[in-house]
Design a binder for these strands. Structure first.
Length: 410
DNA sequence: TGTCCACAGGAAATACGGGGGT
DNA sequence: ACCCCCGTATTTCCTGTGGACA
């Protein structure tokens, strides 16, 4: 009886004042394409990315007069709205073109994770419905042929928005880019406009010069969002997804401040908001400033652990060795020290050891992800070495250790 | 001031895996 | 069943270099 009553109470208190009203608006993945566009419009209505939008529109306008605009490259860090802006403008452009009787279509090739040229090509073929999905086995030329066949009947404009172009692993002569820039425009009747997006400003630096000379591009650079922009973006989410009455004053400002100081990444800012809301909902409280702190910390811990889950076993073993070697000494360690620990870890886990050179590279990788930091030290005529130390917050270390142990056993 | 160690880190070679064509 | 193609991981090999020491 008392238990029933207690459960009743629990349901009552948690439904009395919900924090989250519409879950889906905290995660773009869950929104339909139209809903996404609608949300984007609301954000861009507030004078965000005006400069970039104007530039993009100016570059694309010639299509409506039947001229051929140059290719475009959108540059800027992750989460600064490159994709969002491009999709919004392209969908609008398509509508306008339709009204004016100009034949125009656009495709969004999203290369979210790094992939070889072959897969990029295959993805493009799938996007255009020109081929089924292959993992391997078919030649790249064959794939190119199928794409060309598929497009052979289309004579209008074709805007190909290649998102995260730098994720295509560059083979020695940039097969994928060469195809897009040199071969495809020759092979099909359509007027091809390429729009590239990339996180790395210099993605064109290390491409083949013969391709480069064909690649006339206009750059549009996206700066990271500032705190004011982020506030506007977050407010839209708050009104769409949350019970605004349950969000304390200053929460949005605080998240925007944190995010703008660290990365200016809107996606991460929304993720932080979403996490804070989830925590508040679970605890049955309002979203307070302290909730934001808790969410921030949870996200940080989580990112350390998440990486372990998907990393290859040897990387985990090296990380584990690095932790064992470095956790309780203020002293720095050198590559060899960690390699010794790594050997032991491999023995215990039944892994075959990798060469020291390889482990050296894995350590570099760990450094890239912020687990360790290294410093080059010269000892004069006694050669040179690299000293490393752990950067993982002490609170995370024990969780991390047990997580890796599980993984290496399983 | 020049020497020269010992390692960082680049480059090329090699092994490997896995799927499709025939 | 065998061969070919492509991409990735790892090994092997080698060069270049910062700076304490003679």
């Amino acid at each position: 009886m008392a238990f029933d009553k207690a459960l009743d109470d629990k349901f009552e208190t948690s439904t009395a004042s919900p924090v989250i009203l519409n879950h889906r608006y905290l995660d773009d993945e869950q929104l339909s394409k139209d809903e996404q566009l609608q949300a984007l419009k609301e954000i861009f209505e507030q004078n965000i990315r005006q400069k970039e939008i104007d530039a993009l529109v100016a570059y694309l306008r010639p299509t409506l007069r039947g001229q051929h605009p140059p290719h475009i490259s959108l540059l800027g860090k992750a989460g600064v709205g490159k994709t969002a802006t491009a999709l919004l403008i392209l969908s609008h452009l398509q509508q306008v073109a339709q009204r004016k009787g100009v034949e125009l279509r656009y495709e969004h090739l999203d290369l979210t994770t790094p992939r070889p040229c072959f897969r990029a090509m295959n993805d493009l073929a799938c996007l255009l419905d020109a081929s089924k999905r292959y993992t391997k086995g078919i030649s790249i030329d064959e794939m190119a042929g199928r794409i060309e066949d598929k497009l052979s009947g289309y004579k209008g404009y074709l805007v190909l928005f290649v998102d995260e172009i730098d994720h295509v692993n560059t083979d020695m002569d940039n097969t994928f880019l060469k195809f897009l820039v040199r071969r495809l425009p020759q092979a099909i009747p359509a007027k091809l406009i390429l729009i590239f997006a990339s996180n790395r400003l210099g993605w064109r630096q290390n491409i083949d010069s013969r391709v480069k000379s064909f690649l006339k591009v206009n750059d549009i650079i996206f700066d990271p969002y500032n705190a004011v922009d982020l506030q506007k973006i977050l407010r839209v989410r708050v009104t769409k997804a949350l019970n605004a009455g349950m969000v304390d004053a200053g929460v949005v400002e605080k998240i925007a401040g944190l995010a703008s100081r660290e990365h200016g990444d809107a996606r991460k800012a929304v993720e932080l908001l979403s996490n804070a809301a989830l925590i508040a909902e679970r605890q049955g409280t309002r979203v307070r400033l302290e909730t934001v702190d808790a969410a921030y910390e949870a996200l940080e811990t989580n990112s350390y652990l998440e990486f372990v889950k998907c990393g290859p076993p040897h990387l985990q073993a090296v990380l584990y060795a690095a932790i064992l070697c470095l956790e309780d000494s203020e002293k720095h360690a050198v590559t060899e020290d960690i390699y010794n620990f790594y050997s032991k870890v491999c023995d215990e886990a039944g892994l075959s050891q990798l060469s020291e050179r390889r482990v050296y590279d894995l350590l570099l990788e760990l450094e890239l992800y912020g687990y360790i930091r290294s410093r080059k030290v010269s000892l004069g005529r006694h050669g040179r070495r690299k000293e490393m130390k752990l950067l993982i917050p002490p609170t995370v270390i024990s969780q991390l250790k047990s997580r890796i142990q599980e993984h290496l056993k399983g």
